[in-house]
Design a protein around this nucleic acid. Sequence first.
DNA 1: GGTAGACCTGGACGC
DNA 2: GCGTCCAGGTCTACC
Length: 298
Amino acid sequence: MSMNWTLPVRPPFSLPAVIRSHGWVQLAPFASDDEQQTLSYISELDSGRVVEIQISETGGGVNISVEGPLEEREMVDVSDRVKWMIGLDQDLAEFYARARGEPKLAHVEEQGRGRILRSPSLFEDIVKTVLTTNTAWSGTVRMVGALVSHFGAPLANDPSRRTFPSPERVAVSDEGTLRAQARLGYRASYILSLARSVASGALDLEGFKNPEIGTPELRKQLLAIKGVGDYAAANLLVLLGRYDFLPVDSWALKCVSHEWHDGQPIGRAEVEAAFEAWGAFKGLAYWFWDWSYLSDER
DNA sequence: GGTAGACCTGGACGC
DNA sequence: GCGTCCAGGTCTACC
Protein backbone atom coordinates (compact mmCIF):
# COMPACT_ATOMS: atom_id res chain seq x y z
CA MET A 1 0.00 0.00 0.00
CA SER A 2 1.48 3.29 -1.09
CA MET A 3 0.87 6.31 1.11
CA ASN A 4 0.75 9.75 -0.48
CA TRP A 5 0.53 13.21 0.98
CA THR A 6 1.40 16.75 -0.02
CA LEU A 7 3.56 19.44 1.54
CA PRO A 8 3.02 23.12 0.69
CA VAL A 9 5.85 25.14 -0.89
CA ARG A 10 6.80 28.80 -0.83
CA PRO A 11 6.74 30.03 -4.44
CA PRO A 12 8.71 30.39 -6.56
CA PHE A 13 9.61 26.74 -6.17
CA SER A 14 10.86 24.14 -8.62
CA LEU A 15 11.69 20.59 -7.60
CA PRO A 16 13.76 19.97 -10.78
CA ALA A 17 15.75 23.12 -9.91
CA VAL A 18 16.55 21.67 -6.47
CA ILE A 19 17.47 18.31 -8.00
CA ARG A 20 19.82 20.00 -10.47
CA SER A 21 21.30 22.41 -7.92
CA HIS A 22 24.48 20.31 -7.70
CA GLY A 23 25.84 16.81 -8.03
CA TRP A 24 24.32 15.43 -4.83
CA VAL A 25 21.49 13.71 -6.74
CA GLN A 26 24.11 11.47 -8.35
CA LEU A 27 25.25 10.25 -4.95
CA ALA A 28 23.56 7.27 -3.30
CA PRO A 29 21.09 6.91 -1.75
CA PHE A 30 19.62 9.70 -3.90
CA ALA A 31 18.20 8.79 -7.28
CA SER A 32 16.16 10.55 -9.93
CA ASP A 33 14.48 9.87 -13.26
CA ASP A 34 16.16 10.65 -16.59
CA GLU A 35 14.47 14.05 -16.85
CA GLN A 36 15.28 14.86 -13.21
CA GLN A 37 11.66 15.68 -12.45
CA THR A 38 11.35 13.43 -9.40
CA LEU A 39 13.57 12.57 -6.48
CA SER A 40 14.01 9.31 -4.62
CA TYR A 41 15.87 8.71 -1.36
CA ILE A 42 16.34 5.63 0.82
CA SER A 43 16.05 6.52 4.47
CA GLU A 44 16.02 4.80 7.84
CA LEU A 45 13.33 6.46 9.92
CA ASP A 46 13.62 7.07 13.66
CA SER A 47 11.32 4.07 14.10
CA GLY A 48 13.94 1.86 12.45
CA ARG A 49 11.87 1.28 9.32
CA VAL A 50 13.80 1.62 6.05
CA VAL A 51 11.75 3.29 3.31
CA GLU A 52 12.09 4.76 -0.15
CA ILE A 53 10.83 8.32 -0.14
CA GLN A 54 9.61 9.44 -3.58
CA ILE A 55 9.13 13.15 -4.12
CA SER A 56 7.41 14.80 -7.06
CA GLU A 57 6.02 18.26 -7.76
CA THR A 58 2.27 18.84 -7.90
CA GLY A 59 0.20 21.91 -8.62
CA GLY A 60 0.45 23.50 -5.22
CA GLY A 61 3.32 21.71 -3.56
CA VAL A 62 5.34 18.53 -3.44
CA ASN A 63 3.86 15.06 -3.26
CA ILE A 64 5.49 12.47 -1.02
CA SER A 65 5.00 8.80 -1.71
CA VAL A 66 6.16 6.03 0.62
CA GLU A 67 5.34 2.34 0.60
CA GLY A 68 3.22 1.91 3.74
CA PRO A 69 1.47 1.57 5.96
CA LEU A 70 3.21 4.22 8.06
CA GLU A 71 2.34 5.37 11.52
CA GLU A 72 1.51 9.04 12.02
CA ARG A 73 4.87 9.74 13.71
CA GLU A 74 6.66 8.12 10.76
CA MET A 75 4.82 10.38 8.32
CA VAL A 76 5.90 13.39 10.39
CA ASP A 77 9.46 12.05 10.37
CA VAL A 78 9.41 11.67 6.56
CA SER A 79 7.92 15.15 6.12
CA ASP A 80 10.62 16.72 8.30
CA ARG A 81 13.35 15.00 6.30
CA VAL A 82 11.87 16.11 2.99
CA LYS A 83 11.45 19.70 4.17
CA TRP A 84 15.14 19.87 5.02
CA MET A 85 16.35 18.00 1.91
CA ILE A 86 14.65 20.29 -0.58
CA GLY A 87 14.74 23.48 1.47
CA LEU A 88 11.03 24.00 2.02
CA ASP A 89 11.89 26.04 5.11
CA GLN A 90 13.83 28.61 3.14
CA ASP A 91 12.61 32.10 2.28
CA LEU A 92 14.71 33.46 -0.58
CA ALA A 93 12.77 36.69 -1.16
CA GLU A 94 15.66 38.93 -0.16
CA PHE A 95 18.10 37.10 -2.42
CA TYR A 96 15.66 37.29 -5.34
CA ALA A 97 15.25 41.02 -4.78
CA ARG A 98 19.03 41.48 -4.99
CA ALA A 99 19.33 39.14 -7.97
CA ARG A 100 16.81 41.06 -10.08
CA GLY A 101 19.45 43.71 -10.75
CA GLU A 102 22.08 41.23 -11.92
CA PRO A 103 21.72 39.78 -15.46
CA LYS A 104 23.86 36.79 -14.49
CA LEU A 105 21.31 35.88 -11.85
CA ALA A 106 18.15 36.97 -13.63
CA HIS A 107 17.18 33.34 -14.09
CA VAL A 108 17.04 32.39 -10.42
CA GLU A 109 13.66 33.82 -9.53
CA GLU A 110 11.87 32.95 -12.76
CA GLN A 111 13.21 29.39 -12.61
CA GLY A 112 12.68 28.98 -8.87
CA ARG A 113 16.36 28.33 -8.26
CA GLY A 114 18.16 29.04 -5.00
CA ARG A 115 17.48 25.94 -2.95
CA ILE A 116 20.33 23.44 -2.77
CA LEU A 117 19.71 19.74 -2.37
CA ARG A 118 20.96 18.40 0.96
CA SER A 119 21.01 15.13 2.80
CA PRO A 120 18.68 14.65 5.78
CA SER A 121 21.56 14.53 8.22
CA LEU A 122 24.56 16.84 8.48
CA PHE A 123 26.71 13.76 9.13
CA GLU A 124 25.90 12.52 5.62
CA ASP A 125 26.62 15.89 4.02
CA ILE A 126 29.93 16.21 5.85
CA VAL A 127 31.02 12.73 4.77
CA LYS A 128 30.00 13.41 1.18
CA THR A 129 31.76 16.78 1.16
CA VAL A 130 34.98 15.28 2.54
CA LEU A 131 34.71 12.63 -0.16
CA THR A 132 34.67 15.34 -2.86
CA THR A 133 38.07 16.64 -1.81
CA ASN A 134 41.27 15.82 -3.64
CA THR A 135 39.53 13.41 -5.96
CA ALA A 136 37.69 13.41 -9.26
CA TRP A 137 33.88 13.44 -9.14
CA SER A 138 33.86 9.83 -10.33
CA GLY A 139 35.87 8.99 -7.21
CA THR A 140 33.29 10.68 -4.98
CA VAL A 141 30.47 8.73 -6.63
CA ARG A 142 32.42 5.50 -6.21
CA MET A 143 33.34 6.06 -2.55
CA VAL A 144 29.84 7.14 -1.50
CA GLY A 145 28.34 4.21 -3.42
CA ALA A 146 30.69 1.79 -1.69
CA LEU A 147 29.87 3.21 1.74
CA VAL A 148 26.16 2.79 1.05
CA SER A 149 26.40 -0.72 -0.41
CA HIS A 150 28.73 -2.05 2.31
CA PHE A 151 27.42 -0.27 5.39
CA GLY A 152 23.90 0.99 4.61
CA ALA A 153 20.68 -0.60 5.88
CA PRO A 154 18.80 -2.47 3.12
CA LEU A 155 15.36 -1.61 1.81
CA ALA A 156 13.10 -4.56 2.69
CA ASN A 157 11.57 -5.12 -0.76
CA ASP A 158 14.78 -4.32 -2.67
CA PRO A 159 17.97 -5.10 -0.70
CA SER A 160 20.07 -3.79 -3.59
CA ARG A 161 19.07 -0.31 -2.42
CA ARG A 162 20.39 0.85 0.91
CA THR A 163 20.46 3.86 3.21
CA PHE A 164 23.44 6.07 3.76
CA PRO A 165 25.11 4.42 6.78
CA SER A 166 24.36 5.96 10.16
CA PRO A 167 27.30 7.16 12.30
CA GLU A 168 26.70 4.12 14.51
CA ARG A 169 27.09 1.70 11.60
CA VAL A 170 30.36 3.33 10.50
CA ALA A 171 31.62 3.71 14.07
CA VAL A 172 31.67 -0.04 14.72
CA SER A 173 33.85 -0.57 11.66
CA ASP A 174 37.56 0.15 11.55
CA GLU A 175 39.96 2.05 9.34
CA GLY A 176 41.25 -1.05 7.56
CA THR A 177 37.74 -2.12 6.60
CA LEU A 178 36.83 1.35 5.38
CA ARG A 179 39.97 1.44 3.28
CA ALA A 180 39.55 -2.07 1.89
CA GLN A 181 35.79 -2.18 1.31
CA ALA A 182 34.82 1.43 0.66
CA ARG A 183 38.22 2.31 -0.86
CA LEU A 184 38.26 5.60 1.04
CA GLY A 185 42.06 5.82 1.10
CA TYR A 186 43.51 8.30 3.62
CA ARG A 187 39.99 9.73 4.15
CA ALA A 188 39.01 6.55 6.01
CA SER A 189 40.48 7.82 9.31
CA TYR A 190 38.60 11.13 8.95
CA ILE A 191 35.26 9.41 8.33
CA LEU A 192 35.79 6.89 11.12
CA SER A 193 36.80 9.57 13.60
CA LEU A 194 33.74 11.69 12.71
CA ALA A 195 31.38 8.72 12.93
CA ARG A 196 32.71 7.71 16.34
CA SER A 197 32.44 11.26 17.69
CA VAL A 198 28.81 11.48 16.58
CA ALA A 199 27.88 7.95 17.65
CA SER A 200 29.36 8.46 21.11
CA GLY A 201 27.40 11.66 21.58
CA ALA A 202 30.56 13.76 21.88
CA LEU A 203 29.63 15.69 18.73
CA ASP A 204 26.04 16.87 18.16
CA LEU A 205 26.00 17.64 14.45
CA GLU A 206 22.25 18.20 14.26
CA GLY A 207 22.79 20.98 16.78
CA PHE A 208 24.77 22.75 14.05
CA LYS A 209 21.41 23.46 12.36
CA ASN A 210 20.49 25.81 15.19
CA PRO A 211 20.06 29.27 13.58
CA GLU A 212 21.11 30.93 16.82
CA ILE A 213 24.72 29.84 16.35
CA GLY A 214 26.70 32.61 14.66
CA THR A 215 28.20 31.77 11.28
CA PRO A 216 31.85 32.38 12.35
CA GLU A 217 31.36 30.07 15.34
CA LEU A 218 29.69 27.45 13.15
CA ARG A 219 32.57 27.65 10.68
CA LYS A 220 35.04 27.20 13.53
CA GLN A 221 33.22 24.06 14.67
CA LEU A 222 33.16 22.66 11.13
CA LEU A 223 36.88 23.35 10.69
CA ALA A 224 37.55 21.41 13.89
CA ILE A 225 36.44 18.24 12.07
CA LYS A 226 39.40 16.38 10.56
CA GLY A 227 39.20 16.48 6.78
CA VAL A 228 37.14 19.67 6.72
CA GLY A 229 39.20 22.65 5.54
CA ASP A 230 38.29 26.05 4.11
CA TYR A 231 36.53 24.72 1.04
CA ALA A 232 34.60 21.96 2.81
CA ALA A 233 33.53 24.26 5.64
CA ALA A 234 32.23 26.87 3.20
CA ASN A 235 30.42 24.21 1.20
CA LEU A 236 28.78 22.89 4.37
CA LEU A 237 27.85 26.38 5.49
CA VAL A 238 26.03 26.86 2.19
CA LEU A 239 24.16 23.61 2.81
CA LEU A 240 23.30 24.93 6.26
CA GLY A 241 21.82 28.06 4.69
CA ARG A 242 24.76 30.32 5.57
CA TYR A 243 26.08 32.09 2.50
CA ASP A 244 28.80 34.35 3.93
CA PHE A 245 31.72 32.18 2.79
CA LEU A 246 32.62 30.90 -0.67
CA PRO A 247 33.52 27.28 -1.30
CA VAL A 248 36.55 28.13 -3.40
CA ASP A 249 37.84 25.04 -5.17
CA SER A 250 39.67 24.43 -8.42
CA TRP A 251 36.36 24.64 -10.29
CA ALA A 252 35.62 28.08 -8.80
CA LEU A 253 39.07 29.31 -9.80
CA LYS A 254 38.48 28.15 -13.35
CA CYS A 255 35.06 29.81 -13.63
CA VAL A 256 36.10 33.12 -12.08
CA SER A 257 39.28 33.21 -14.13
CA HIS A 258 37.34 32.84 -17.38
CA GLU A 259 34.64 35.26 -16.21
CA TRP A 260 36.85 38.21 -15.26
CA HIS A 261 40.56 37.41 -15.80
CA ASP A 262 40.84 36.15 -19.41
CA GLY A 263 41.53 32.61 -18.25
CA GLN A 264 44.73 33.64 -16.47
CA PRO A 265 45.74 31.80 -13.27
CA ILE A 266 44.11 33.39 -10.21
CA GLY A 267 43.91 32.69 -6.49
CA ARG A 268 41.31 32.57 -3.78
CA ALA A 269 41.50 36.33 -3.25
CA GLU A 270 40.19 37.04 -6.76
CA VAL A 271 37.19 34.78 -6.22
CA GLU A 272 36.42 36.43 -2.90
CA ALA A 273 36.76 39.88 -4.44
CA ALA A 274 34.42 39.01 -7.29
CA PHE A 275 31.55 38.29 -4.89
CA GLU A 276 32.40 40.61 -2.01
CA ALA A 277 29.52 42.93 -2.83
CA TRP A 278 26.99 40.16 -2.28
CA GLY A 279 27.62 40.11 1.46
CA ALA A 280 25.46 37.54 3.21
CA PHE A 281 24.34 36.20 -0.19
CA LYS A 282 27.86 35.58 -1.52
CA GLY A 283 27.49 31.81 -1.49
CA LEU A 284 24.15 31.87 -3.31
CA ALA A 285 25.29 34.37 -5.93
CA TYR A 286 28.38 32.28 -6.58
CA TRP A 287 26.47 29.00 -6.63
CA PHE A 288 23.87 30.09 -9.17
CA TRP A 289 25.98 32.47 -11.26
CA ASP A 290 25.49 31.97 -14.99
CA TRP A 291 29.18 31.37 -15.78
CA SER A 292 30.35 32.34 -19.28
CA TYR A 293 32.88 29.53 -19.05
CA LEU A 294 30.10 26.93 -18.80
CA SER A 295 27.89 28.67 -21.36
CA ASP A 296 30.79 28.69 -23.85
CA GLU A 297 31.32 24.98 -23.32
CA ARG A 298 27.71 24.16 -24.17
C1' DG B 1 50.14 33.60 9.15
C1' DG B 2 52.10 31.42 5.15
C1' DT B 3 53.70 27.37 2.54
C1' DA B 4 56.17 22.80 0.73
C1' DG B 5 55.27 17.97 0.67
C1' DA B 6 52.61 13.94 1.47
C1' DC B 7 48.32 11.75 0.94
C1' DC B 8 44.54 6.95 -1.24
C1' DT B 9 42.53 5.98 -5.42
C1' DG B 10 41.53 5.17 -10.15
C1' DG B 11 40.89 7.20 -14.70
C1' DA B 12 43.31 9.63 -18.48
C1' DC B 13 47.16 10.06 -21.09
C1' DG B 14 51.61 9.23 -23.45
C1' DC B 15 54.83 5.94 -24.78
C1' DG C 1 51.03 -3.03 -20.62
C1' DC C 2 53.40 0.38 -17.75
C1' DG C 3 54.64 4.82 -15.68
C1' DT C 4 53.13 9.38 -14.66
C1' DC C 5 49.93 12.81 -13.61
C1' DC C 6 46.20 14.68 -11.13
C1' DA C 7 41.33 15.49 -9.71
C1' DG C 8 35.51 20.18 -7.05
C1' DG C 9 41.79 19.91 -0.64
C1' DT C 10 43.62 19.09 3.83
C1' DC C 11 47.01 18.10 7.26
C1' DT C 12 51.45 18.49 9.25
C1' DA C 13 55.81 20.37 9.93
C1' DC C 14 58.46 24.11 9.49
C1' DC C 15 59.66 28.93 8.83
